[in-house]
């Protein structure tokens, strides 16, 4: 088991699969990141029922520079995971023929471009909220 983990993780890092490989790794990392966030998010939001006096106190942690940074990183992870996840699900379910080297690589590049294009405006809007401009 420990050997599996060491081999597995070092293989994931050393394998030279280029952008497609980094995209696979990023899908895992973003999936795990979002799952950790969601677990904490469920606990925090449910204080509205279990301990309402704590809700606003705990939530004020988001209104700090660290909170804003966390929000910006989470936005990237959710957008990337969603765009790339859609690509995977769409190809697997409806267009298995697109899993050939050329269109697959093309779609990987498109995934990163779409992610960045959606992320920028989100960052700007979150920053505007944070500085009370909107």
């Amino acid at each position: 088991m420990v050997k599996n983990i060491v081999n597995g993780v070092s293989g994931l890092i050393r394998y030279k699969g280029g952008i497609a490989h980094y995209t696979f790794l990023m899908h895992r990392i973003s999936g795990l990141g979002v799952l950790v966030f969601l677990s904490l998010h469920i606990l925090l939001e449910s204080t509205a029922h279990y301990a309402p006096h704590l809700y606003d106190i705990l939530n004020s942690g988001l209104r700090t520079p660290v909170g804003l940074a966390a929000e910006i990183i989470m936005a990237f992870l959710v957008i990337f995971h969603g765009v790339n996840g859609f690509r995977i699900a769409y190809f697997d379910l409806f267009h298995i023929d697109l899993w050939t080297p050329h269109p697959a690589l093309h779609s990987v590049r498109a995934t990163w471009i779409i992610t960045i294009l959606l992320w920028f405006p989100a960052v700007i809007i979150m920053a505007l909220h944070s500085f009370h401009i909107i």
């Binding site: 809700y55 988001l62 209104r63 969603g82 996840g85 995977i88 909220h129």
Partner: peptide, 28 residues
């Protein structure tokens, strides 16, 4: 894969509404 297709509209509507339209500053 099936949940993925469903989650895109559901998660994105939720996050756009809570963080971009309302914003963390106004959440209480």
């Amino acid at each position: 894969r099936l949940s993925a297709i469903l989650l895109i509209p559901m998660v994105w509507f939720h996050t756009i509404f809570t963080t971009l339209i309302i914003g963390a500053e106004n959440t209480n």
